[in-house]
Amino acid sequence: MSAPVRRRTVALAAVLVALAVPVATAAGPAGAWELPPRDYATWHEYGAATAGGSPGPVVVAPGDIVWYADTLENEIVKVPAAVPAAVEHFRLGALAPGISDLAAASDGTIWFGDFLNAAIGRLDPATGDVTEYPLGGAFDTATSLTNGPDGALWFGDPSNGGIGRIALDGSITRVPDPAGAGVYGIAAAYDGRLWYTRDGLGSLGAYDPVTRDLDIVPVGVSGFTGLTAAASGGVWVGGIDTVVKVATDGTVAKRITIPAPPFGPVVPRHLVSADDVDLAFTDGDRGLGRVDLWGTVSFSRPPFAGSEPDRLGVTSYGSLWYSDRGRQTLGNV
């Protein structure tokens, strides 16, 4: 087990105090933290929980709890989707991490990849404690941290060519890729396997943590831009101007080419999936993209000047939450 670095933090709860008054909605002014309608007709935008902050990586935990990391303010913020005014701030202490992504573990803790300190961090919301587990190498990184079917957290391990696992006690093990591929995307699919992108090889790996079998699945994508488990089964993978849905048997169920002109190449990033929206992603030029169950692609952009939706999370009822890189805000639709 990597020796953990522990530090005590204070959780500052501001119950029933809004993060900020909503800047605007597409349907006109609304009450603070009004929930969005199910038809996605209304966009909502909220200021950062701490003035001057900038929401970054987002994850939606069980119970539809939205979490986001704010590196500028050195904190992780909890926003219950049902009562979003009941916000809590969790300061991360003196060792400021560079948070690449967030994951919610089965025991209620929040984990994050820390690329500045070559570590994986753990926040215990019950106590405010933050623990860091070094990855072992000075330049090691944990990418696309995800909650696995075995209760552990799994991550891409590009520095060592494969995937990694960190148990809830902080012990780290690694599974090498046969070709030493750099792994930047990993997702726990509903078949119990960990699927991951094999950078530069045009294929996915599908690893079974029970049998330890590994299948290589060609998908014909060069330059992976994202990966997520599909709520309807299988996985979605993104590439330049394309998204591909792969069934659990390894067959390509859908291959959707997204026309580039007149906006330039489409780069689908930060893919998420839910029952109501088979796939959602962000693109720097077109905003928020959606693919429905029939494979129809649509794009929309928040009605706020300079908006750039970046990181995505999705609730159990299909509401999309996003951090806005251009406006340094949090939004939902």
Rank of each mutant, 00 (worst) to 15 (best):
V266P: 00
A86S: 14
T127K: 10
Y46Q: 07
L135M: 13
G136T: 09
G313D: 03
P149Y: 04
A94K: 13
P29V: 10
R290P: 00
R122Q: 15
S171I: 00
Y317P: 00
R8T: 15
V77L: 08
G162Y: 07
V60A: 13
P309K: 13
P218C: 11
D64S: 12
A94N: 09
T143W: 05
T50Y: 01
A18I: 03
V66W: 01
I258T: 08
I99M: 14
V10R: 15
L204G: 03
A104L: 05
R212A: 14
P265M: 08
D129S: 13
G326P: 00
A81G: 04
G136Q: 12
S273L: 04
I120R: 01
A20Q: 13
P309A: 10
Q328I: 01
A81Y: 02
S159T: 14
G164H: 05
T197Y: 02
A61K: 06
D285E: 15
V314D: 04
D324W: 00
V15E: 07
T248M: 06
T127A: 12
A11G: 07
V235W: 05
T143V: 04
R286K: 14
W195P: 00
A229P: 04
G52C: 11
G313R: 05
D292V: 08
V217S: 02
P158H: 08
H44V: 00
P4V: 12
E45W: 11
D213N: 14
E45K: 01
S307R: 00
D140S: 13
V235K: 02
A181S: 15
S2P: 15
A167T: 14
G52D: 09
V291P: 00
D70F: 06
F112K: 00
A305Q: 12
S323F: 05
A86G: 06
G331A: 04
A81I: 05
I99Y: 03
E75T: 10
G220S: 06
L12M: 09
A27C: 09
G223W: 08
W43Y: 13
R286D: 06
S2R: 15
V87Y: 04
P55Y: 12
D114C: 04
V237G: 02
H44C: 03
G250F: 06
V83F: 11
P84M: 10
R165C: 07
I120P: 04
A274W: 05
A138Q: 11
R212V: 08
W67R: 07
G108C: 09
F281L: 10
Y46A: 10
P209T: 04
G56V: 12
P265G: 02
D70Y: 09
D241I: 07
D64A: 11
R327G: 00
V272A: 12
S232E: 14
V183S: 03
S106K: 06
L271N: 05
